[in-house]
Amino acid sequence: MRARSDRFGSALAPLVVVAVLLALWQAAALAIRSSYLPPMTEILPVLGRLLWSGDLYPDLASTLARLFVGLGIGLVLGIPLGLVSGRSPAFANFITPILAAFYPVPKAALMPIVMLWFGAGDFSKILIIVLTVSLPLVYHAQQGARAVDDKMIWSAQAVGCGSLRRLFRVVLPSALPEILIGTRVAIVIGVIVTITSEMIVRQTGLGNYLFTALDMGQFTLTYAVILVVAALGFLLDWAFEIVRRRLTVWAPDRLDADVAATS
């Protein structure tokens, strides 16, 4: 039962869901008839022209560039930090309270403060992304490293494997399924924080384009950009899920992987 619904769910169901949601929207818009809620039959042509004209692409590119640079730095910093803290209780005792205290801070809200220090350029925005995506990466790498079978570490030690080599050759592969779950969370919240900081400091990016359209009263365009960003969030997660499942076919699938993805 579960396997069948999964196969159905992975291929066709999301498309059906999207079609149903868009149809519901169309029905609601036709019922309400307000310029604040244009029907899909008006939004989709505007969306088509927007994608055809290329007007959005500079902002899309700057959003994606910041997101991927931020994610890349976050991965390089967060995973080793998490792995070490998963194997060293002393380091974990040091770093865990700091991460726990930082966890409920609205990271995008740091934007005005970070801008005072480093200016309004890309550096400040990428710093915010790195700070945000590092949290789930460190946390999940730590959980993964903690769960590594001690006997594997001892055997590696016995054959003369040094501590740094052990970290990358033994701990990293066994923690990989957990790290990839952390990466999925990082991608989802990375998109959110990138867009949100662009909404708070409006210069470039999709978040900026969205609110510029809203401020200029171009409501249909606003909805078209909303669809673009929503699709971007879904597609990035969907693409990474395919990679994640390929890389961890050997690991038992976790039922609560989706719960983690929303944190």
Partner: peptide, 15 residues
């Protein structure tokens, strides 16, 4: 399940 798959990874703030 399909609804969750589509809606949960969306950056909700965009709405």
């Amino acid at each position: 399940e399909p609804l969750i798959r589509v809606l949960s990874p969306l950056p909700k703030i965009v709405f």
